[in-house]
């Protein structure tokens, strides 16, 4: 018969609404897996912070309070724009939807820029574990704090990069008309992911930047 490529198995759905519900449920299930993926790290963080409260407070004081705070504001704003894009596509305003997504993407890039700057600073201060780490006379557990700092923010940044890719893909799909008022789902689905990654940072911010006291 025919090659499977030219005749892909028909989508298993009876109507668009069923498809949409399945997409949402699928994305939420994926987010549950993400909670546990980051959750393993949060559990590890809790155990080690419980064992070394002073080293962790010391580590927190080495981080730039203003960068963490500014970055939180940047991400919250980007989330607002993603939510606005979802609203716009449902109201058939494709231009506004694209504008909002571009704004969200630029803010995401700004976040990564600030993060990169902070990484660079830490590198100069010899606070990168594994490569000439210098505890500056503090407890050796300081290195554990910085290990977790880099791993947690690094994995978060990796998720941001995926999110930026997804926003780029959305912009193209909206431009081609493949995502529109009739088929708005993709914006909401990418949006769910973006908001979730934002929430991860909402917890990283206090755990890393606000425990110096």
């Amino acid at each position: 018969m025919n090659d499977a490529l030219s005749h892909p198995a028909a989508p298993p759905y009876v109507d668009r609404d069923q498809h949409s519900v399945a997409n949402h449920l699928g994305m939420w299930t994926f987010l549950a897996t993400e909670i546990l993926f980051f959750g393993g790290l949060f559990t590890g963080y809790t155990v080690l912070r419980w064992a070394h409260p002073h080293a962790f407070a010391e580590g927190s004081r080495h981080l730039e309070f203003w960068i963490g705070t500014a970055n939180t504001a940047v991400l919250l704003t980007s989330s607002l724009f993603v939510a606005l894009a979802d609203l716009a596509i449902k109201r058939d305003d494709r231009r506004a939807a694209r504008r909002h997504l571009v704004a969200a993407g630029l803010l995401g890039a700004a976040f990564l820029g600030l993060k990169g700057f902070e990484y660079f600073q830490k590198f100069q201060e010899h606070l990168v574990p594994g490569s000439g780490f210098d505890a500056h006379g503090a407890q050796p557990a300081l290195q554990l704090f910085f290990f977790l700092y880099f791993l947690m923010t690094g994995l978060h940044a990796l998720h941001m990069l995926f999110g930026l890719g997804a926003i780029g893909w959305l912009l193209r799909q909206i431009g081609r008309g493949a995502v529109s008022r009739e088929r708005p789902d993709a914006v909401a689905i990418v949006g769910l992911y973006w908001h979730f990654v934002d929430c991860v940072w909402i917890f990283l911010y206090p755990l890393l930047y606000l425990i110096g006291g």
Binding site: G44, V47, L48, P129, G130, P140, A141, Q143, L144, L148
Partner: peptide, 13 residues
């Protein structure tokens, strides 16, 4: 990198 997250000598568990 042997940062010691599972190594009691370096504060890990």
């Amino acid at each position: 990198w042997g940062v010691g997250i599972f190594d009691p000598k370096l504060g890990g568990d």
